[in-house]
Amino acid sequence: MHNLYSNKKVIFSLMAPGLIVFVTAILAPIILSTYYGFTNFSGIGASSFIGLENYKTLIHDSVFWTALRNSLLLSIGFICIQHPLAMLTAVKLDKLQGKTEGLFRCIFFIPNVISVAVIAYLWKFIYNPSFGLITKVLRALGYTGQLNPLGAGNAIWAVLLVLIWHGFGWGMLIYYTGVKNIDPVMYEAAAIDGASGSKTFFYITLPLMKPVIQVNVTMAVISALKQMETVYLLTAGGPGNETQFMASYLYKQAFQSYKYGYGNAISVAFIAICLVSTVALNRLFAERGE
């Protein structure tokens, strides 16, 4: 067996399927996208090489910076609102037993198994200024003014609320798995020493959850950067471009405005931002660990 796995032909044959998938599904599209980012290709017909013109336009594109700002706001919402609540919920679920624990775990995860289209249209009805749930509640409380959550000035916060709510189940489930992997002996020892619930959380649960937190935060930042479907179905980036995110703006430029070259320049910037964010988060967690 050792001789078999030391044979270069065998090693290559085992690696070949994964390499083929990586080259055709990831590496080749990135290379093509980088190339088209230097052209004025419209998606149809011929194209010409224009150098860095798309990237110069990108630097001065106010909508691109709005999309990036919205992605950063969503990242902050995930990290500062969704994740603390998800971790606390996971800790509370861990203390439940039997069917009750499984029931609540399923309830919190239900939004993640519902179609994105259903989620978007459900919240459209909730936000409807004429007959939506929010409007009815406000009128029942005596508010007679007009409120349009998806209108100018309000839309970005309404979209952020939907996205934070929709992704809660995944974050909670990952933290729940991390809590379940902590040795119960640690908690028993802390209880014998007289540690309170808050001290147990801050001195045992949080330190031992560091790898899980790192993975979850990194995934949250990347997810915030690549938000597309929910935003597109909920507001299509409107009103104006108030709720544009990087992925939705890329789609708009490439497939609606027929600026395929410019859309690919946005995609290259998008990949670069994702890589920088991932490296920065990994270094941050490494420094915190040291």
Rank of each mutant, 00 (worst) to 15 (best):
residue 1 M to G: 12
residue 6 S to L: 14
residue 7 N to M: 05
residue 13 S to P: 03
residue 18 G to E: 09
residue 19 L to E: 09
residue 20 I to T: 07
residue 20 I to W: 03
residue 20 I to D: 03
residue 21 V to S: 13
residue 30 I to G: 11
residue 31 I to E: 05
residue 31 I to Q: 08
residue 33 S to M: 09
residue 33 S to F: 00
residue 34 T to Q: 13
residue 40 N to Q: 12
residue 42 S to N: 12
residue 44 I to A: 10
residue 45 G to T: 03
residue 47 S to A: 15
residue 48 S to K: 14
residue 53 E to R: 15
residue 53 E to N: 15
residue 57 T to F: 11
residue 59 I to E: 07
residue 59 I to C: 04
residue 62 S to K: 08
residue 63 V to Q: 00
residue 65 W to G: 01
residue 66 T to Q: 06
residue 66 T to Y: 01
residue 67 A to P: 00
residue 71 S to K: 05
residue 73 L to V: 06
residue 73 L to F: 05
residue 73 L to I: 05
residue 78 F to K: 15
residue 87 M to H: 12
residue 88 L to M: 13
residue 88 L to S: 07
residue 92 K to D: 08
residue 98 G to I: 10
residue 98 G to M: 07
residue 98 G to K: 09
residue 98 G to L: 07
residue 100 T to P: 04
residue 100 T to E: 08
residue 101 E to M: 05
residue 101 E to K: 08
residue 103 L to P: 04
residue 103 L to E: 00
residue 104 F to K: 02
residue 105 R to Q: 09
residue 109 F to W: 11
residue 111 P to E: 13
residue 119 I to L: 02
residue 120 A to L: 14
residue 121 Y to M: 15
residue 121 Y to L: 13
residue 122 L to G: 09
residue 123 W to M: 03
residue 123 W to N: 02
residue 123 W to Y: 03
residue 124 K to S: 06
residue 125 F to T: 14
residue 128 N to F: 08
residue 128 N to Q: 14
residue 131 F to G: 05
residue 132 G to I: 12
residue 132 G to V: 11
residue 133 L to T: 02
residue 133 L to R: 07
residue 136 K to G: 10
residue 145 G to D: 00
residue 146 Q to C: 13
residue 147 L to N: 07
residue 150 L to F: 02
residue 153 G to W: 01
residue 154 N to W: 02
residue 154 N to T: 06
residue 155 A to R: 00
residue 157 W to T: 00
residue 159 V to R: 03
residue 161 L to S: 04
residue 164 I to T: 06
residue 166 H to I: 05
residue 169 G to R: 08
residue 171 G to L: 03
residue 174 I to M: 13
residue 174 I to R: 09
residue 175 Y to D: 11
residue 176 Y to F: 13
residue 179 V to H: 07
residue 185 V to L: 15
residue 189 A to S: 14
residue 190 A to I: 00
residue 192 I to K: 04
residue 194 G to M: 09
residue 197 G to N: 09
residue 197 G to I: 07
residue 202 F to S: 06
residue 204 I to T: 06
residue 208 L to R: 12
residue 213 I to L: 04
residue 216 N to C: 05
residue 228 M to L: 15
residue 230 T to Q: 15
residue 233 L to V: 04
residue 234 L to G: 14
residue 241 N to I: 00
residue 248 S to A: 09
residue 248 S to M: 13
residue 250 L to C: 01
residue 252 K to M: 03
residue 253 Q to R: 07
residue 256 Q to A: 11
residue 258 Y to C: 12
residue 259 K to F: 08
residue 260 Y to M: 13
residue 266 I to K: 00
residue 268 V to I: 08
residue 269 A to F: 09
residue 271 I to D: 04
residue 272 A to G: 07
residue 275 L to K: 05
residue 276 V to Q: 02
residue 276 V to T: 02
residue 278 T to C: 04
residue 281 L to Y: 04
residue 282 N to Y: 14
residue 284 L to A: 06
residue 285 F to A: 11
residue 285 F to K: 06
residue 285 F to N: 08
residue 288 R to K: 11
